[in-house]
């Protein structure tokens, strides 16, 4: 059946993102198969289009159907990479880390890994340029991190509890705290919200 493999890619996306928030392994086999199918369809169409150019229309429906299949494959493939790309980009904001966690990285294709690095770099450059625009007359640069404060903060300091051993953690004022499992701290929200996102600390009231 035409376009079966490319549709499987879409089905895979659908089941992944609606049920669990995780990336499935990049389906290299189906992508390659679809490429081959496209090449074959295109080559066959090129042969069949010759009589049509000379005024013989008997091949027209076949060409139409192959063309539709090509378009369909294109749409499925593009949607597959596009949706995954958006998901990978959201990682940077969700986890506030420039290194994707191992279990996610294992499911990314090589190109996606490279793309994520480039995206992080571009975003960092952008944030740097924003920061520089805030430079006051006295020369102070206010650092802007777009991944911070995705929710409006209620208070500057918050109580947190460690969920796992993390080790020494340097705060923005230069002090260090040691984050040991089950210890509780009262820290600046801006310092610790990345660790909360990553599931190392828990925000308690």
């Amino acid at each position: 059946m035409l376009c079966q493999k490319s549709f499987e890619l879409i089905k895979q996306l659908d089941s992944n993102f609606s049920n669990a928030h995780e990336l499935s392994p990049f389906n290299e086999d189906n992508v390659r198969y679809t490429f081959e199918e496209c090449k074959t369809l295109f080559a066959q169409n090129q042969i069949d289009v010759q009589p049509v150019l000379q005024g013989d229309n008997s091949n027209l429906p076949t060409i139409q159907m192959r063309h539709a299949a090509l378009q369909r494959n294109k749409r499925c493939l593009l949607t597959y990479v596009y949706t995954r790309m958006n998901w990978v980009a959201s990682l940077r904001f969700e986890l506030a880390t420039v290194v994707a966690p191992k279990h996610i990285k294992a499911n990314m294709s090589d190109l996606e890994v490279v793309w994520f690095q480039k995206y992080s770099k571009t975003l960092a450059n952008y944030m740097k340029s924003l920061s520089q625009a805030t430079q006051t007359n006295s020369g102070y640069i206010y650092p802007i991190d777009l991944t911070q404060y995705t929710k409006p903060p209620k208070s500057l300091f918050i109580h947190v509890r460690c969920l796992k051993d993390y080790g020494e953690f340097e705060l923005s004022d230069g002090h260090t705290v040691s984050l040991v499992k089950d210890s509780q701290h009262y820290l600046l929200a801006s310092d610790v919200q990345d660790l909360i996102k990553q599931g190392i600390l828990e925000h308690i009231d």
Binding site: A20, H21, E22, L91, E94, L95, P101, H103, I104, K151, P152, P153, K154, I158, A189, Q193, I196, K197, Q198, G199, E202, H203, D205
Partner: peptide
């Protein structure tokens, strides 16, 4: 509870798994 900071859904999903 809305102002409470929560871990990312990706982390939570993985932990449950």
């Amino acid at each position: 509870e809305f102002c409470k900071l929560l871990p990312s859904i990706i982390v939570t999903a993985n932990k449950n798994k």
